[in-house]
Computed example of a mutant assay.
Amino acid sequence: MGRNNERNIKKHNDKLHKEQDKAKKAAMARKEKLKQITKQFNANKQNEINNYDMEHNDFNLLQQEVQKIIDLIAAKNGKEANNKLVQISQQLDDFIDFSDDDADLIEISRYQVLLNQLHQKINELN
């Protein structure tokens, strides 16, 4: 009997198959982990995009509302303009409370300055 008997060959093949299975499982685990990481990254990215869109829309709405105040001032309607100004000021305060981005805070401060100037104009009307 030599070394290449059936029992030794079977043992060798079993060991080889076990190593191959282990390598396949490790490769599949890496792929699965990569899928999870990619899925989480894409979800975070989509969340950032949604937040940006929401904030961008908020600032667009804010700009439209400020334009309404300017139109009311031009129409010499100080009372309505003042009411609208108070409403927008409250919105800005809410934005400040929930904003953590420096660029948003800078944009909000610009609107605050503009609203202060509009408030002075409204007071001049009355």
Rank of each mutant, 00 (worst) to 15 (best):
M1G: 13
G2M: 11
N4I: 03
E6Q: 09
E6H: 02
E6S: 11
R7L: 13
N8E: 15
N8P: 02
K11T: 12
N13Y: 10
D14N: 11
K15L: 15
L16T: 10
K18W: 12
E19N: 09
K22G: 05
K25Y: 03
A26H: 08
K31Q: 13
K31P: 00
E32Q: 03
L34F: 09
K35P: 02
Q36L: 12
T38I: 11
T38N: 14
K39S: 14
F41E: 10
N42C: 06
N44Y: 05
K45M: 10
Q46D: 14
E48V: 05
I49D: 11
I49K: 12
N51G: 03
Y52V: 02
D53I: 11
M54W: 08
M54L: 11
D58N: 13
D58Y: 12
L61H: 02
Q64D: 07
Q64E: 12
Q67G: 00
K68T: 07
I69F: 04
D71C: 01
D71R: 03
A74D: 04
A75C: 00
K76F: 04
G78V: 00
G78F: 02
K79F: 02
K79R: 10
E80L: 11
E80C: 00
A81G: 01
N83R: 04
V86S: 07
Q90D: 12
Q91P: 00
Q91N: 05
Q91H: 01
L92H: 03
D94F: 05
D94K: 03
D97E: 06
D100N: 13
D100L: 07
D100T: 05
D104V: 02
D104I: 01
L105M: 13
I106W: 02
I106P: 00
E107W: 03
E107F: 04
R110F: 13
V113F: 08
L114H: 08
L114N: 06
Q117E: 15
Q117K: 13
Q117S: 15
Q117G: 14
H119E: 15
H119W: 14
Q120E: 15
I122K: 06
I122M: 09
N123S: 12
N123F: 10
L125N: 10
L125F: 12
N126C: 04
